[in-house]
Design a protein around this nucleic acid. Structure first.
Lengths: 203, 203
DNA sequence: GTCTATAGCCAGATAGAC
DNA sequence: GTCTATCTGGCTATAGAC
């Protein structure tokens, strides 16, 4: 039960599969390409994961397990709403810089197959908005925040942070950015987005 | 040159292709499924569009040509920034309710093949941010708006409006919404989003 | 223009030797 | 566990009759 990632065949496959699936999607990915990247034979993929579908689901679950704690942090810790917004914005952008394909991958594949979500939300990892909602209501009542529905605020927060990564090719084209400029643009959004939200909701 | 949509074989094919491609993506779509939906033979697809790739590009171009004017309206008309934000938010959400698959389709396929964008931006239809940028700078200087970079504001505006449609399965899961509730939620965002932005940027 | 039939290819999956 | 070889099916595309 060592937590060190041993370089076993299984982890090699999962790494390669992650890369190919996140770039090409389920339909566009080829088992041969995954095998090549893992430097093993195509037959081994089936030996370890039985089918393309099961291999894909392993990759998807991994990605979601990485993303979910990011959201839970905002929803369930004990800091003020203002701090949560600042921390999430900064942490999330850093997180995606490390795993740039995750949001796109998850959203694409959920649109392709919305059942995946019930599949996953049966497991306890699925983010829950209840605590965040109560907290917003309290801060509104205390006059810290202007009246706003927690659901709307939460989607605002996600949208402002996630969208530019998902729509990266469009953002780059609209603003005439190269990859390097895009990264800088996203870096500046760590402060921009947080300020933007807080200006709007603070009483 | 009648502008009435005649129900020709060609338009039937394009309608069917639109439906299938927007649901399944380029890789997931099957020519047979498009033929079935158009109620014609598979060979006809190739007779009219020669290849799957060319048929796909026709569908993609159509979708983009529908979306671009929505953006240009914000960028290039003569109303104030505040009016632009209110109008865009309201119009865009109505627009997507009519064509729900467009944003996802465009963003998915641009991530799959970023070259499509240079392909399209060679044609004059590509939205340009210059006028919007100057206008924001002037309104900031006049003290109508708090200091903000036009690029950030533009991406904020897009993000808040587009993201919930792209991430619809996630939004529905997080907020426990059925399709009907989701539609209502988006309807309420016509006002919510506009107010949210304007609260934040108005001096 | 519209159809049927089929060519030709490539993918996922498996059998079976080592 | 790992490999090579192969099966089997499904896909795009085309040939050719009408």
């Amino acid at each position: 039960m060592s937590k060190k990632k041993e370089v076993t065949t299984e982890t090699q496959i999962l790494e390669a599969a992650k890369h190919v699936f996140q770039n090409k999607g389920m339909d566009g990915a080829r088992m041969q390409e995954i095998a090549d990247e893992a430097k093993i034979n195509k037959a081994m993929l089936h030996y370890y994961y039985r089918s393309k579908q099961l291999l894909f689901e392993a990759v998807f679950k991994n990605a979601f397990l990485l993303l979910a704690p990011q959201l839970n942090k905002v929803l369930n810790d004990d800091s003020s709403i203002e701090d949560k917004i600042r921390n999430f914005t900064s942490n999330y952008i850093s997180f995606i810089n490390k795993h740039p394909y995750i949001p796109n991958f998850i959203i694409q594949e959920l649109n392709r197959n919305p059942n995946f979500i019930s599949n996953i939300s049966e497991q306890a990892i699925f983010p829950n908005i209840d605590k965040f909602k109560k907290q917003v209501e309290i801060e509104v009542q205390q006059g810290i925040l202007k009246p706003i529905a927690a659901e709307q605020l939460f989607i605002h927060l996600l949208a402002l942070n996630v969208f530019p990564f998902i729509a990266k090719p469009l953002v780059k084209a609209f603003l005439h950015l190269e990859d390097k400029d895009f990264k800088q643009f996203m870096e500046s959004r760590k402060k921009e987005v947080a300020d933007f939200i807080i200006h709007s909701i603070k009483a």
